[in-house]
Design a protein around this nucleic acid. Sequence first.
DNA 1: TAGTGGTCTAGACCACCCG
DNA 2: GGGTGGTCTAGACCACTAC
Lengths: 256, 256
Amino acid sequence: MTELFTPGAFEDSGGGPLYLQLQRLIAGAIASGQLKPGASLPSERELAAMTGLSRVTVRKGVAELVATGQLVQRRGSGTFVAPRVERLEQALSLLTSFTEDMERRGKTVESRWIARGLHAPAPEEVMALGLRTDDRVARLERVRSSDGVPLAIERASLPRDVLPDPMAVTDSLYAMLESLGQRPVRAVQRISAANLDPRDAELLGVGAGVAGLRIERISYLPSGKVVEFTRSLYRGDAYDFAVELKLAPDGERKPE
Amino acid sequence: MTELFTPGAFEDSGGGPLYLQLQRLIAGAIASGQLKPGASLPSERELAAMTGLSRVTVRKGVAELVATGQLVQRRGSGTFVAPRVERLEQALSLLTSFTEDMERRGKTVESRWIARGLHAPAPEEVMALGLRTDDRVARLERVRSSDGVPLAIERASLPRDVLPDPMAVTDSLYAMLESLGQRPVRAVQRISAANLDPRDAELLGVGAGVAGLRIERISYLPSGKVVEFTRSLYRGDAYDFAVELKLAPDGERKPE
DNA sequence: TAGTGGTCTAGACCACCCG
DNA sequence: GGGTGGTCTAGACCACTAC
């Protein structure tokens, strides 16, 4: 298996910079199944010796595969093929909670709290929740995992009068809101993509720079009051959001 | 302005690796407006001399800012602060076309064709479009720009009987389909995030590895026939997709 | 032609993990 | 303690761009 990385393998490896040839070699071995998820690669020094490259060049080749989530590196331990993540498909137009989604799939749900408490609101929260600047805001920040795999970071802000005691939330926020008679019935979401910064990447157990799906949600009660302002980051490789589209009415399509 | 990068600036720059300190310094200068979009940075060699770092370390610090789209580098020319991109908000649940969307906003639309023609279908296309393997498929691949800024790569596949002459499509595909009486009325989309590979990144004018939004769409005629299978890549920093959510009916929410 | 980013090297030390 | 990845250096050549 380590015969993959003999100096010879480079001759027939197309052209271009050496680090890209190495990268293609590794990426190809992963794609073709020669290197299976969880398998360990030779150490950087070994790779350098085997290929005749310098360690710096080996690192550059490997680095991009780490940045795109195909490899993971652990200091003191080694370099490994990233475990395959099952892609979850989720309907984007139903207002459901993470806990309920996963339970419906028969998966376990774990939460790791990063922060939970009452705080003075940030300007963004004042805007989104329609607060006064001397109001206080309940903040819930946690990493959501399923079957042991971290999938998303959820940062929820709620007005204090909606959730006076954030510490009482243990698992499903929506279940808690329901028991308080404050479950939202409508929400607006905005979706974009962003590279994960080092902090968020670590929380999700991937390399810095891996693409994440950023979702901002504002939820409303039937009365129109804002219940929740949530910013989530989903692992891009772990989620597919599904939406159904309808033809826009003619009037909206062509206003002139 | 170049006093930013004196050796002194490093002393008070927090701790951690030198390349991260440099990175924070540059990122901070961009965020605070000291470095404006389009501004050029000192050359790597100058930065190295000014900060007392080696050029390799300077490059490492700069590299991540390029990979996240904050800087752009042009060989032979220099390193520049990335031009600010206006974020476009688009409703995700309306089946509209790129051309019509942009026209509604009063923006110009440009298309650069990458490929356009009839081909033997790939297995993926056979599946999505319900073709026979000896059918042929019309492929339209182009870069969509607005006001001169590339925003998305669009790769559309249509059955030959829906679009017999792909070369006849010049701007709006949907306008063409409408004139053929084949405009879809319904579609299903799947959304995820991915790091742009070097090829796609170049087409969109950003660095390799920048986060992109990947959208797969399958569109249907009223009869249920599949009209279109499109894979698009949107720049993550240029798009916000908006969706409205409704509370899931109780039966769907809790099946047991 | 002079300057830029892009690639590559050999060698060093550190922080961390594991047996 | 021995091996791993993480950081850093000084110096070199190349391909490209701008003038």
